Simulated scan of single mutants.
Amino acid sequence: MTTWMRSGPFVEGEWVRLSDAKGRKHNIRLEVGKEFSTKRGQLRHDDIIGHPEGIVITSTLDGKYQVFRPLLSEYVVSMPRGAAIIYPKDAAHIITMADIYPGARVVEAGAGSGSLTAYLLRAVGSEGTLGSYEIREEFADTARANVEQILGGEVPQWTLTVGDVREVMTEPEVDRLVLDMVDPWTCVPLAAERLVPGGIICAYVATTTQLSLFVETLRADGGFTEPHAWETLQRDWHLEGLAVRPDHKMIGHTAFLVTARRMAPGVRSLEKTRRPAPGAYGPDYHGPRPAGMTRPEDD
């Protein structure tokens, strides 16, 4: 049983999440005989081990803390990282909008620190497979350590390869291709070759320039449906009696997400009927263009 699937009493070696009445939170790994230092004194691990979730323990200076197993969304934002993580709000949209399902064959380009990897492995289940590719070895090491910590050891359905996905991808056929990289548009030919008909390509990009280049490259290829792009903003609410209002802080822009589906071999997608906005493909635009539209210097 993996770390994030446990139930029953707490055991040595697993992570727990402590929270006090002011909302301060700590993640600790349980060890027999150890203590955890807080501003309100020491907390004994032995007071947690063997007890169920939802207990309240008291520190040596009478500080009280609730104890639960951390949700995956709580753990990934505080785990060790090399590369920036994909936030839970974006991971949730990738799982949903890219339709990652149990048994799916998924390739992920850009493992980063392993945040999205953990969510993908949960989604594909024991019958699916996930191939993760990471160019930087130090990032791959961090991702492997984090994923194995989260899932309780080696994961048979997961492979992690250090290298450029465009050069070393071994999967001949995949259902989903998820791209978290600087230049995802360079993977469109790979997606056209390896994605099954009806398969989904999904890119996670930070800037509007990346977004534009990726979308126009998909359109120019012609073998994918019209791309769908969006971003999500997460805002919590303050709740106290009748003082119910939006919180003063929020998780704003993190990245744009883009999805498109693979057409059948040899079939071009229906071009979206649209009139380009004035200047959309002007002299400052250097990416792919709609069929039949030339650059000013080509006229």
Rank of each mutant, 00 (worst) to 15 (best):
T2A: 09
T3V: 14
M5K: 10
S7D: 10
F10Y: 15
E12M: 07
R17I: 12
L18F: 04
A21N: 07
R24K: 13
H26R: 13
L30N: 07
E31D: 02
K34M: 10
S37P: 04
Q42R: 15
H45N: 01
D46P: 06
D46N: 11
G54H: 03
G54S: 01
V56Q: 14
V56E: 13
I57N: 05
I57F: 04
I57G: 08
T60Y: 01
T60M: 00
K64P: 05
Q66V: 08
R69Y: 06
P70G: 03
L71T: 12
L72R: 02
S73L: 01
E74P: 08
S78D: 01
M79I: 03
A83N: 03
I85H: 13
P88R: 11
P88T: 12
P88E: 09
D90W: 15
D90G: 08
H93E: 15
H93L: 15
I94W: 05
Y101E: 04
Y101K: 04
P102Q: 05
V106L: 10
E108N: 13
A111D: 01
G112P: 01
G112A: 02
G114A: 02
G114Y: 03
L116P: 04
G128K: 10
L130D: 02
L130G: 05
Y133V: 05
R136C: 01
E137Q: 11
A145E: 07
N146A: 03
N146R: 05
E148Y: 13
Q149V: 04
L151V: 01
E154L: 00
V155G: 00
P156N: 02
T159L: 08
D164P: 00
M169W: 08
E171T: 09
E171A: 15
E171S: 08
V174I: 11
D175C: 03
L179E: 05
V182K: 11
C187R: 05
C187W: 07
L195V: 03
P197E: 03
G199Y: 11
I201Q: 10
C202G: 09
T207L: 14
T208L: 10
L211C: 11
S212C: 07
F214D: 14
F214T: 14
T217R: 11
L218I: 11
A220Q: 12
A220K: 10
A220E: 13
D221N: 06
F224D: 01
E226G: 01
P227T: 12
P227S: 02
P227D: 03
A229F: 09
A229I: 06
T232H: 08
Q234A: 13
R235C: 10
D236P: 08
G241T: 07
R245L: 11
R245Q: 07
M250P: 08
L257Y: 06
R261D: 12
R262A: 08
A264S: 06
S269E: 03
E271S: 14
P276E: 05
A277K: 10
A280T: 03
A280G: 00
P283G: 01
D284H: 15
G287V: 06
P288E: 08
G292P: 06
M293K: 10
R295G: 07
R295N: 08
D298S: 11
